[in-house]
Simulated scan of single mutants.
Amino acid sequence: MSDAVPPVVPLLDLDGDVVELLRDLVDIESVSGNEGPITDAIETALRGYPHLEVIRDGNVLVARTNLGRASRVVVAGHTDTVPLTSEPNLPCRIEGEGDDTILIGRGTCDMKGGVAVALAAAAALTEPRHDVTWIFYDNEEVEAEKNGLLRISRTRPELLAGDFAVLGEPTAARIEGGCQGTLRVQATFTGRAAHSARAWMGHNAIHDAADFLARLQAYEPVQPWVDGLQYHEGLNAVKITGGIAGNVIPDRCTVEVNYRFAPDKSAEEALAWVRDYFSGFELEVTDLAAGARPGLDQPAAADFIAAVGGEPKPKHGWTDVALFASVGVPAVNFGPGDPIKAHADDEFCPASQVYACRDALIRWLTGA
């Protein structure tokens, strides 16, 4: 018989101050792959609300109303964070007063602020004007094949069904439409190793990458307009490896390139463009994910914009709105926190934006 003590599930107060709720969520460490404890805590809290049907699938948690409304919307957010650093990422700290109050710590911005907003709204809204599906999922910050939302889109697609979706990624409390696609390729150059004192006996693979890097440096970003929003593309070397010692001519060099493309291109079109741009070089594709058009001309999106206010901006980056778009659900990004601070050592989220997003979400779902 085991004497092991089961882990204590932290108690989350979904009816209290949403900023305190965010603090409690941040203090549950949930680096990708370790979402079990935070999912346990959220599940325990949500099962206390009779107006919600709660479904757990691994570390994906779905809570939904079943009121027979004419439409259904989805509000989703991921519970994982990028790894901690040597900086004091946890526990969460609150600094400042009044409108200047900020929460500092891993996940405050990306994206436990959005999760806190969704949880507070899910608990409060017993009679929303749309049926609502609330989704809290794991493994967003790692490779796509581990993504919990992707997994249930394949195994239980009915859970993602809806007329419109809101993803609580950090947007500084403004609407960001669509998202860029992302593509990564590697170009590998091979040479012949030799002692660096007798370099002429070998062939330097790093030197062979010069023409490839020159082509990268010559790239000029395009800024296409898509559905009324202007995107900014990017093509950059993000990693280069080569060499084994300071006295050996390297016989291998690999350059990894990331292409962020506007959603007017499909994944296939983006890949074809990259292959054409680097014609003459052999490329290995290591990652490819389509973007999502803004879809702001959809009636459900117009309704959300009217309720939230402000001028929508393009999402520069990839988010799971692309996954919703792939299953026919138009989606936008909307959440507290400056996206520039996502993954930063000093990641933080303004308390005022947490309140603003919570209020906007409730305003939209009640029609107030």
Rank of each mutant, 00 (worst) to 15 (best):
D24A: 15
H207N: 13
H130T: 05
K341R: 15
T133M: 09
A193W: 02
T65M: 07
P221D: 13
I38Y: 09
A123C: 09
S326D: 14
L125W: 00
N333H: 08
E140P: 04
K112E: 09
V5Y: 09
A292G: 14
L235A: 05
A245D: 15
C349E: 01
N258P: 03
R293A: 15
A118P: 05
V222I: 15
H130P: 03
A344R: 11
N139D: 13
P221F: 12
A121G: 09
S71N: 05
G77D: 10
V329M: 12
T254E: 13
H203Y: 11
P50Q: 06
F304I: 04
L125G: 01
C357M: 12
R192V: 11
V238R: 00
V117N: 03
D99K: 14
F189I: 01
A118M: 15
D211G: 13
S352T: 08
N247T: 14
V238E: 04
D40M: 07
I38C: 03
A218C: 05
N333R: 08
V327K: 09
R106L: 03
T188L: 05
T190P: 02
L84N: 10
L216R: 03
R23G: 12
T171F: 02
S71I: 02
G367C: 14
P263I: 00
A322T: 04
V8P: 01
V115M: 06
P350L: 07
P170M: 11
D80C: 04
D320T: 05
P128I: 06
T65S: 13
A172D: 14
R363C: 10
G178C: 03
D346R: 15
A70S: 15
F281L: 06
I240G: 12
R129C: 02
V9K: 05
L183R: 07
L90P: 12
G295C: 07
A194P: 09
A123V: 07
E145R: 14
V285K: 04
L67K: 11
N204M: 07
P312C: 02
Y137K: 06
I94G: 11
V54C: 04
G295L: 09
V9H: 05
D227N: 07
A45M: 01
Y49P: 10
E43Q: 13
L216Q: 00
H51T: 12
E269R: 10
V26P: 11
V117I: 10
A272E: 14
V354Y: 08
M111K: 00
I249A: 07
A368E: 13
A245Y: 11
S71T: 11
V18N: 01
